[in-house]
Nucleic acid binder design. Structure first.
Length: 322
DNA sequence: AAAATTTGACCAAG
DNA sequence: CTTGGTCAAATTTT
């Protein structure tokens, strides 16, 4: 292999795997397309099954969820692999981190390096947000994603009319599940044709197994949509019966656009064609049918509400073009 | 009483 | 200094 660019720079890491990168980008695109198609199929098939009645709809819904969950995980793994690879190209691996709890100030500090002169590591504290892949979706129903979340913060955001709410997985403590998400309303409720819309960003993969907890799977707490600060809100406990191998109704890919948010800071534009391949990924679309997908997911137990949403004209929303 | 949310403070990144 | 992410005490809800 050779440098594809003969420049004054002698960074040998750039030789790397342009081929690998572009082929994995292609794989990602195909998988994203597959997800989109499955989602579309689901939105078509489930309503018909539900109208026909019978338990088959539930089984089919679970199977769809499993398929979508599998491909979502595969996509996430692939993206992580790509991310790891680009990191390995840029920087030596960091020394192992040590988490220390400062009891006095009740602040958790993350230290790195070898014991003696260990200092709080600035970069590590926000590393997850900046570097991890995230999945961004836009949906009128930000809370129906099949996972249980606990709100841990809310912040007003610059130039935004609505605050951003921060959630972590309910099972973070028990099962060390690192998944978090943020929810922020970006559009006012303009009536039935124009529902309030939210941007939901998921960080990290769920490693929890809600079925292992007595609460059962997939109970989602909602907030009142009039504002993100509402206390309480309606539960959707009925959703929690799902005992297949895919015990959690994993529909986190409710919709729209994946923004990998992966930053490879040291790869600048002068760093050859890699930019082309990596930017391929920054707008991989995954699921483009958010509202219908949401409706289909939850309609088995709440037909009135969900079909009302559908009847109000939320058809298939397509973002971008394939 | 337990669980969940709110809220202000702390801290890292830019 | 400003902004946004996280923590945990205080408060509210269940």
């Amino acid at each position: 292999m050779r440098h594809s660019k003969s420049s004054s720079s002698s960074s040998s890491t750039l030789v790397c795997d342009n081929d690998d990168r572009s082929s994995s980008a292609a794989v990602l695109r195909e998988m994203a397309r597959e997800q989109s198609l499955v989602t579309q199929l689901r939105a078509l098939v489930l309503p018909a099954l539900q109208l026909a009645g019978g338990e088959r709809a539930q089984v089919v819904a679970q199977m769809f969820d499993c398929i979508l969950d599998c491909s979502a995980k595969a996509i996430a793994e692939l993206k992580l692999l790509r991310l790891d690879r680009s990191r390995a190209d840029d920087a030596p691996p960091p020394p192992p981190a040590v988490v220390v709890v400062d009891d006095k100030r009740r602040v958790r500090k993350i230290f790195s390096g070898d014991g003696d002169n260990a200092k709080p590591n600035r970069q590590q504290r926000k590393r997850r947000r900046l570097a991890d892949d995230s999945v961004t979706l836009e949906t009128p129903v930000p809370h129906y994603d099949g996972h249980q979340w606990r709100k841990y913060g809310q912040k007003p955001i610059n130039n935004a009319t609505h605050p951003r709410s921060y959630y972590k997985c309910t099972y973070k403590q028990e099962q060390d599940c690192r998944a978090t998400k943020t929810v922020q309303q970006y559009r006012e409720d303009g009536g039935t044709d124009d529902p309030a819309m939210y941007t939901v960003v998921y960080y990290g993969q769920h490693t929890c197994n809600p079925a292992g907890n007595d609460a059962g799977a997939a109970v989602v707490k909602t907030e009142s949509t009039g504002g993100l600060s509402g206390g309480g809100g309606a539960d959707t406990d009925e959703l929690s019966r799902s005992d297949s191998q895919c015990s959690n109704i994993s529909v986190t890919c409710t919709s729209v656009v994946v923004h990998p948010h992966q930053r490879t800071p040291s790869i600048q534009s002068n760093n050859c064609e890699q930019l082309g391949t990596s930017s391929d990924l920054t707008n991989v679309e995954v699921n483009t049918y958010d509202q219908l997908y949401d409706v289909a997911t939850f309609s088995p137990f709440d037909l009135d509400t969900d079909w009302a949403i559908d009847a109000h004209g939320h058809g298939l929303l397509k973002y971008g073009d394939w």
